[in-house]
Each structure stands twice: as C-alpha cells, then as structure tokens.
Computed example of a mutant assay.
Amino acid sequence: MDGGPPRELISLADDEGNSVTVRVLGRNPRWAAGLDAEIVVKTPFVSGRIDLALYLLRLKSWADALDRLEAGEDVAWMAMSRGPSISIQLTGERGCPEVVVEDESGSMVTVRVPIVPPDDWIADHRRRLRQVMDHWVPMLSG
C-alpha cells in the first residue's frame, strides 16, 4: 500500500475483467458523520460509477453482510435505504457468484456482474473493512 488512507472497502474482481469496487473518497465536507464514496463497475461490456454516502451504520451493516455471506447466505447491502444498493448472490444465473448493483431511486438502472472471487475473499473484505473503520470512523462525528 502507498501509506495513504485505505480507499477500497469492496474490491471484487476476476480474470475476465469484471469488477465491482466501493472506494472511499474522503470525508463529506457537508456532513460530519459521513464519508463520500463511489461504487465503480467495470466489465468488458459496460462500465459506470455512482456516488455513495457511507456512515457508521452502513459500515456495520457491511460487517453483518460479510457474516451472512460466510454462512452461505445471499445478501442485499443498503437495499432498504435511498441510493444505490449492492446484492451478492453466491450462486448466480451463470453458476458463479453475481454482484448486482441497483440504482433504483436515481437512474433506475440495475447491473448484474458475474464474478468468481478468490477463495479468501470474505477474509480479505473483513480486513478491508477493519482498515476503513480504523482510519475513517474516528474522524466522523455522530
């Protein structure tokens, strides 16, 4: 790592060029309890990004989602809130995990990305979450 603050909360990618990333951009200048972030989708077919607000409750709900994924359950992260959501289906339509990014309240676009993550991806994402929480949460108020 370059020694800077941790940026990638989620980084799911495969050898086919498909990826879904949630990148922390920094503190939200207008909201002391929030972080500016973005969801970035890249595939050989379609690419895009959407703004995302992160705050402590959303980070904790990502930890819960990782627990459920480890138990073999599909998850829908941020599905009950305004803005984009990310679902992970462990056995998707193509026989591999799929990440579904939905922007129902904004563009009304849904993107389904098949991704075969490495075996240790859940442990890797727990580490990413811990690094993001350790660095960014002490800076947040509320």
Results as ranks from 00 to 15, higher is better:
R130N: 12
L35P: 08
R112Q: 11
G34Q: 15
Y55V: 00
V75L: 05
V75I: 15
I39F: 00
W31A: 15
G26F: 00
F45A: 15
S61R: 15
R82H: 11
T91W: 04
V41H: 00
L25M: 12
K42F: 03
D119F: 09
D51H: 08
A123Q: 13
W31D: 15
R127H: 09
P29W: 00
L52H: 06
K42P: 02
P118K: 12
T21L: 13
W62R: 06
V113M: 03
Q89A: 10
C96D: 06
R82N: 11
K60N: 13
R127P: 03
A65C: 11
P84M: 06
S61D: 15
P117N: 05
T91E: 12
M80I: 11
D120F: 05
I88D: 03
S61F: 11
Q89M: 09
R68D: 12
S87G: 11
L69V: 04
A33D: 12
S81H: 11
R49W: 07
V40Q: 07
W31G: 08
E38H: 08
T110K: 14
L57K: 14
V75H: 03
A63I: 09
V99W: 03
D74A: 01
P97N: 02
W62N: 05
W62V: 05
M80Y: 12
E102K: 13
H125V: 05
A65D: 09
V40W: 02
S61C: 07
A65F: 01
S85A: 13
L66K: 09
I86P: 03
S87E: 14
H125I: 07
A76H: 10
R112M: 08
R30K: 13
R130V: 11
R128Q: 12
A123H: 09
I122T: 03
L54E: 04
M108E: 14
R82T: 11
P29F: 01
G83P: 07
R58Q: 09
R49H: 11
I122S: 07
E98D: 01
S47R: 14
G92C: 05
V116H: 06
P44I: 02
S81C: 09
P97K: 02
L90D: 04
R58K: 15
E98P: 07
P118D: 12
N28V: 01
N28W: 01
P97H: 07
V111F: 04
L35T: 08
L57D: 14
Q89K: 14
S107N: 02
P118C: 10
D120P: 10
V116P: 01
S81Y: 11
I115L: 05
M108W: 10
G95L: 08
G48C: 01
D67M: 06
V22N: 00
L90M: 08
F45M: 12
R127C: 08
E102Y: 00
L35F: 03
A123F: 06
P29G: 02
V46F: 11
L66D: 08
E102M: 10
P29C: 03
L90A: 04
T91H: 10
W77S: 06
L69P: 10
S87R: 13
W62K: 03
I86D: 03
S47K: 12
M78W: 15
D64K: 13
V24F: 06
A33F: 08
G34K: 12
G34H: 15
V101F: 04
V75K: 01
C96L: 14
P117A: 02
T43L: 04
R23D: 04
G95K: 10
D74Y: 04
E93R: 15
I86S: 06
E104Q: 14
I39Q: 00
